[in-house]
């Protein structure tokens, strides 16, 4: 068995442009109008990834906790913005709760994984922390985005039932509890589905990367198992936090539904 990474030379990297040309031909053939975006996307990906390669090399070399932590918070901020960008709630400001939920779930699960399970030396090794926290964030971001969107959607769709419960003296939590449960479930479902099919339908990116880098597949699998369960845990905590911190926003100070929820329902 061959070990060690097979390096990609500049010439080989340039050859990958052929694949972009292939995508470009599809776009031109079907008149998709994507040629410009495709070219721009390729250039951006090339520049961004090259830069991040150099930045990561420096960060790994410094390996300073006071640099690693702000970087992870910055990653949380970008993920929080991305997670809430698609949530169609103009009157709500979910960015802050999204940031809190992502940061809390990522640090909670990430520190357990890095500190207790992987245990690098030193414990805050940038080479371990940044990719692990990044993987948690990437998945949690999608989870909380789904959960938040679903929560608002469910409340809008069941606004009459929520109000009816309020009319019987329900607390805001009692009035939306069942809907919030559905939202958390929606946020967690993709992660649970991926737990079911991992290894059968596709090999996850991290494991593939490790194998390509020359790791023993049996070792790569162990890492992947840790990653999968940590992602499931982080998504669950993140979804719970985001809906827990957000559901109150659909109620007024007098614990009635904000009129916007009803108006949009028609």
């Amino acid at each position: 068995m061959e070990h060690g990474i097979i390096p990609i030379s500049n010439w080989q990297l340039a050859l990958s442009v052929v694949l972009v040309l292939l995508a470009g031909m599809v776009s031109a053939f079907l008149k998709l109008g994507l040629l410009k975006s495709l070219a721009w996307g390729t250039v951006r990906a090339f520049i961004q990834l090259t830069l991040i390669g150099y930045v990561l090399a420096y960060i790994f070399e410094w390996n300073n906790l006071f640099i690693i932590i702000p970087i992870i918070f910055f990653m949380c901020l970008v993920a929080a913005r991305e997670a809430t960008r698609r949530v169609n709630e103009p009157t709500q400001q979910p960015m802050l709760v999204s940031f809190i939920s992502l940061s809390a779930s990522t640090f909670l699960v990430g520190l357990i994984v890095v500190g207790l399970i992987i245990g690098p030396d030193p414990w805050y090794s940038a080479r371990v922390m940044i990719p692990i926290f990044g993987m948690i964030l990437g998945n949690s971001m999608n989870g909380i985005s789904l959960a938040l969107d679903r929560m608002y959607g469910e409340i809008r769709a069941h606004v009459d039932e929520v109000e009816e419960l309020l009319c019987f003296g329900a607390t805001p939590w009692e009035a939306v509890r069942d809907l919030v449960r559905k939202a958390v479930k929606a946020g967690m479902t993709p992660t649970i589905n991926s737990l079911m099919v991992v290894g059968l339908v596709s090999l996850p990116g991290m494991m593939t990367g490790q194998i390509l880098a020359g790791a023993d597949p049996r070792e790569a699998v162990r890492y992947q198992i840790v990653v999968m369960v940590m992602v499931a845990a982080a998504v669950a905590v993140g979804c719970l936090l985001i809906v827990g911190l957000s559901y109150r926003k659909v109620f007024t100070e007098d614990l009635a539904l904000v009129t916007d929820m009803r108006r949009s329902n028609g």
């Binding site: 309020l166 019987f168 003296g169 007098d254 614990l255």
Partner: peptide, 14 residues
């Protein structure tokens, strides 16, 4: 508000 709505109950038309 909870006590109020429990004592003063609104029944919507629909």
């Amino acid at each position: 508000p909870m006590t109020w709505r429990r004592r003063v109950h609104y029944l919507p038309q629909r």
